[in-house]
Design a binder for these strands. Structure first.
Lengths: 353, 353
DNA sequence: ACGTCGCTTGGTAACGTTACCATGCATATT
DNA sequence: AATATGCATGGTAACGTTACCAAGCGACGT
């Protein structure tokens, strides 16, 4: 089993020697084949194949003072929200020479700071970062960055360079308004914990209810403010929203406040858990209990009854962010600094009575 | 908005000049602070802060002919299976200087090939790759790689260097045997499509039923052999298993084969969809229809009734793989080439009658 | 016949860091 | 007293590539 450094690497010089050409010609044949004559290209390709030459991208990056890596920072990979953003990013990078690098900050500012520092040391072609909650140090690093920086999945007037997203406050407000319009009056709120984005949804929920004179803090279940982070191990799927948690929250609500008639869950998976709790207790949805989620994953429509949710432009955020990176790298205008993609309140049976 | 190359970069030479020391001392202060005297360290740190120096990792990688990047290739990010593997990898990398790079092959061999080639050009510290289905070209590249290569989440006698996983065939067999033991006789199989791993589960299912003399090909619903890949866009969450698909498959089964009494779903999310279908048709689970899934995500236990599934060591695969990489890099023995972590058949109400 | 243009090709100096070896100096060993 | 040892420090040559400029050469216009 080879471990390291088994002799010299095959370099571009070896290829050039074997092909009987200069190194620059090989270099060009690799990157701009159109600038090399057909015959030489053939000879060079053969030499490359014979020697099993692998270009060293570290050397290339050093010599050309840039790389083809676009870094994408997301707070979680176990929540499909950001998986879809990433999918958009990958779809957006196709037919370009760029490469995508995913970084998982795990909802930790310290980790995010370290990662951004490490990314910058690699001279990335672009950076796509989730949300607007960067620490001052992160923000400073990103402002100083010599490459396109796109924020996604949130909204602000003052992006670092450009933001593509939507307003969580407004999304929370509109879904809550839908519940009010549907005739619900004692509307609870379930969340595992609040960060900038989920906190925005809560703000919107609260604002809508206060306007209607219906806000009741006792109906808000945030479990604990911030998730515990047991020694060493950071945020993981056991600590964030789970169906089991949603079920437990609904059991608790049914016990504590039998008068509650609806719940706005901060996440779809909590809503699914709440639905199962109602199923097992024989509480009819939507008659006795309205249930709404957030994200509109595919299982919301498939559930019985189908669950209302807020559809957000996850894929589009990733896709548009990557296109913006590409446009700026190409020297084209990359459009307005603030792009609000909006969202859809999807009304289904679970909130229709 | 800065675009590129705004003047010279701050280099280690600038720092050395400013601190009044040699470049090597700065280099050492950065990587092995213990080998530099306290006083100089202080002066150097100040110079670094003053100049806002950012070490160029591309240059470092070139000079030292290695990097600290461990590449992790997974076929999907929208399926939590691999998210958990990745979480294990991240937990395993803590307290080391290594960095994790995630690559999404999207179930495409061509993409995987390109990515492996690109990864090797960067001289990674290690590679963790999902499954054993690499193309011959991939396999050759990985065998030639000058770094630890760990395969995870499957099983074979002939790993590239080392494999950490479990047997999908055996898992499929045991869950099917559990259904037989529970008294079910007409056991259907739902899958969206079959790859090496899901195909293994199907093999196990078939073997168990054939042994019991119960196999009925008409009860197997594989939708279509391979998912379509519409122009340009690769595999995405809309094409793989979804709850809506599981629901549709169950509706179809109930219509076509009213005598079917159980289903083994290749994925938990299909099982959830099947459950919703039964809910909406008033088919009682587990009495009229047993339902089992695969993966044992948290919502299986939270469902009503709780759904049986196969718990697989997702996190452990990632964690152990990263530890194996670290051990080999440290020059320690990295244990047996084949590590079978096993799995658990989790029996819940949905298959208990 | 002579310059000029466009195209292909190649020599060489960066790029910013680390590996390797050398030096100087204080302390320990004989 | 002479020599060996250990530690902190620094000079310089790689590392493998690309940027920059120069040169060769046929074709074309005057």
């Amino acid at each position: 089993m080879p471990v390291r450094k088994s002799g010299k690497q095959v370099t571009i010089v070896d290829v050039a020697t074997r092909a009987g050409v200069g190194v620059m010609t090989v270099s060009r044949a690799l990157r701009e084949p159109s600038k090399v004559s057909k015959e030489l290209r053939k000879v060079i390709d053969k030499a490359i194949a014979d020697l099993n030459y692998i270009p060293n991208l570290n050397a290339r990056a050093l010599a050309s003072t840039r790389t083809d890596n676009v870094a994408v920072l997301v707070p979680s990979l176990t929540q499909n929200i950001f998986s879809d953003v990433i999918r958009g990013v990958y779809d957006g990078v196709e037919d370009s020479a760029l490469r995508v690098e995913i970084f998982n900050t795990r909802y930790s500012s310290e980790v995010e700071e370290e990662q951004i520092a490490a990314i910058l040391r690699h001279q990335p072609a672009g950076i796509i970062v989730s949300g607007i909650e960067q620490t001052p140090a992160c923000r400073e690093m990103l402002e100083r960055a010599q490459c396109p920086v796109i924020q996604v999945m949130d909204m602000t007037d003052a992006p670092i360079q450009k933001i593509i997203g939507f307003s969580h406050v407004e999304a929370g407000r509109q879904m809550t308004q839908h519940l009010i319009d549907a005739g619900y009056r004692k509307i609870a709120f379930f969340a595992r914990w609040l960060n900038g984005r989920s906190g925005g949804r809560f703000q919107g929920y609260r604002a809508a209810l206060e306007t209607a004179g219906l806000f009741d803090p006792d109906l808000v279940d945030l479990t604990e403010g911030e998730p515990e982070r047991p020694h060493g191990h950071l945020q993981d799927s056991q600590q964030i929203s789970t169906a089991a948690k949603g079920r437990a929250m609904m059991y608790d609500l049914l016990d504590r406040r039998p008068d509650a008639d609806a719940v706005f869950c901060n996440t779809d998976v909590l809503a699914i858990g709440a639905l199962f709790a109602c199923n097992s207790r024989g509480v009819s949805v939507p008659e006795k209990m309205g249930i709404a989620g957030f994200n509109d994953f595919d299982y919301m429509e498939a559930a019985w009854p189908p669950l209302s949710s807020v559809r957000i432009p996850r894929w589009q955020c990733g896709y548009d962010a990557m296109l913006a990176v590409r446009r700026q790298l190409a020297g084209e205008d990359f459009g307005p600094a603030v792009v609000d993609l909006g969202f859809d309140v999807v009304r289904r049976e679970s909130t229709t009575r």
